[in-house]
Design a protein around this nucleic acid. Sequence first.
RNA 1: GUAGAUGUAGCUCAGCUGGCAGAGCAUCAGAUUGUGGCUCUGAGGGCCGUGGGUUCAAGUCCCAUCAUCUACC
Length: 390
Amino acid sequence: MLCLSVITRLCSRGESIAFAYSVDYSSRETAARLGRVTTSHNSFATPAFMPVGTQATVKCLVGEELEQMGAGIILSNTYHLFLRPGEDIISEAGGLHSFMHWDGSLLTDSGGFQVFSLASRNRLTEQGAVFSSHIDGSTHEFTPERSVQIQEKLGADIIMAFDECIPYPAEKEYIRSSVERTTRWARRCQEAQRRSDQALFGIVQGGVDQEMRLLSLEQLVALDFPGYAIGGLSVGEPKEMMYEVLDRLMPLMPRDKPRYLMGVGSPDCLLEGVMRGVDMFDCVLPTRIARNGAAMTSKGRVVLRNAQYARDFTPLDPECTCSTCRNYSKAYLRHLFMSTEILGPRLVTLHNLHFLLNLMEQIRQAIREERFLEFRQRFYTTYQARGSGF
RNA sequence: GUAGAUGUAGCUCAGCUGGCAGAGCAUCAGAUUGUGGCUCUGAGGGCCGUGGGUUCAAGUCCCAUCAUCUACC
């Protein structure tokens, strides 16, 4: 099998390797591949799911627990940390790793997405985005340069280009102008970068327009990023559209660079993404729905508030080896949610992340043994998708 | 014992000079994909304390009665 091993040396002074990605195995039956990302903090196997810890915390859990369940990398967020506590405080703490006590790899999103999804009265110019804080209404401006500057102070291993994530649906000409601006912004991010120990990923945009996606990819590849993200998907479009975009786009993405599908994390989307060659995913779904009492299982969603679990003394998933499933029943978990006890969100967050990280481990093993398609097929026979595909 | 107030959904209460029984919370169910533990959506739920009366029509007006609360003796 084709085995690529390319090390991206970001460190111009020739010091230790700051970032490397290698493809260890490429599936014969699909476009899936096994790989490894190495940062100055650790190395982790791909395809990987990255738990989201927006505000320098994966809500409800501590780092040791994440590490124990197999998380090699987690996400945090420029927009949120800039507003609170501010990048200077985190820098003074010795950087994000030290501040939040996480020794694994870290990735920070650029804040582009949040400026449009959370902030109000935002205004876009070629220079950047002016927006009002969702916390206190104060006015701020993010530019590509500012975003990189903040992300350098935060100190994650992987940082993201400041992009414009357009809503679905969108007019073609609007998509085109946003793709071109995202490219110009990506170049400015590269030029603004001062630190040599962080990998800056570019973000492919283009909505669900195939031509615009390819244009975006072409422009970004010319800039030679150490990794490429696919943004602007899973923003309300039908899943088939997302898969169609991936079908066209993935074969054209650089083979020797990691490919990161942003904001996608329902079990079926993970399978479909991996099959098309995606290496990294992040998603708030497992942690967010956990706090609302929904658990991910191999059979689909279990909404713990449902009355049918009031006297169900069996675990969420008898096969699951997480501490929640080993020690607690659905009836107990339901009780915790009905009485709004804080332990409920915590126990289900623990389970949901364990479920997804374990799913990724199973996926990697299936790829290694050339039985990914069979694994996928078997998964779908017991899995009942609802709502978001979960 | 006397006087006053109050009885409307599981809970807390709206309901005008009589005209199809309402809200919030709770319950039941749905949504959530580069995170506000937020939020959103839908559903079920009523002998209007009880018994009479007036009226075309009473949660609403009148009488009686029961219950609860408060004050006084």
